[in-house]
């Protein structure tokens, strides 16, 4: 299986959703993220990181809020947003990063 470190090296943008199972706003964002993933299919990869299971990744990127969204490109964080976000802002950011 591809590791997180490998996955974010991609030239295509990768949207990462750092979430927790116990976090209400994260749950609320689920359908939004699914919908976003569908509309950027083939152009952007969307992955979810459970901060309780992947503690190391979460602490490596200094995640101290859930949800936190990040866009990676060539291994670098190009955008970061703590907390909830609406669909069109997220799509705008992804289009800008593509």
């Amino acid at each position: 299986m591809e590791s997180f470190a490998q996955l974010i090296q991609s030239q295509q943008p990768v949207l990462v959703d750092f979430f927790a199972t116990w976090c209400g706003p994260c749950k609320a964002m689920e359908p939004v993220i699914k919908d976003v993933a569908k509309s950027v299919e083939g152009k952007v990869r969307v992955v979810k990181v459970d901060i309780d299971k992947q503690r190391q990744i979460a602490s490596q990127y200094n995640v101290s809020a859930v949800p936190t969204f990040m866009i990676f490109k060539n291994g670098n964080v190009v955008w970061r947003h703590p907390g909830m976000i609406d669909k069109s802002s997220l799509l705008n950011m992804l289009n800008q990063s593509a």
Binding site: S64, A65, V66, T68, H81, P82
Partner: peptide
């Protein structure tokens, strides 16, 4: 520092501290 320790949701982010 929003998202790096500044938060408006204790229930979401208190866990990190």
């Amino acid at each position: 520092l929003n998202g790096y320790g500044v938060s408006a949701c204790a229930v979401c982010d208190g866990f990190f501290f």
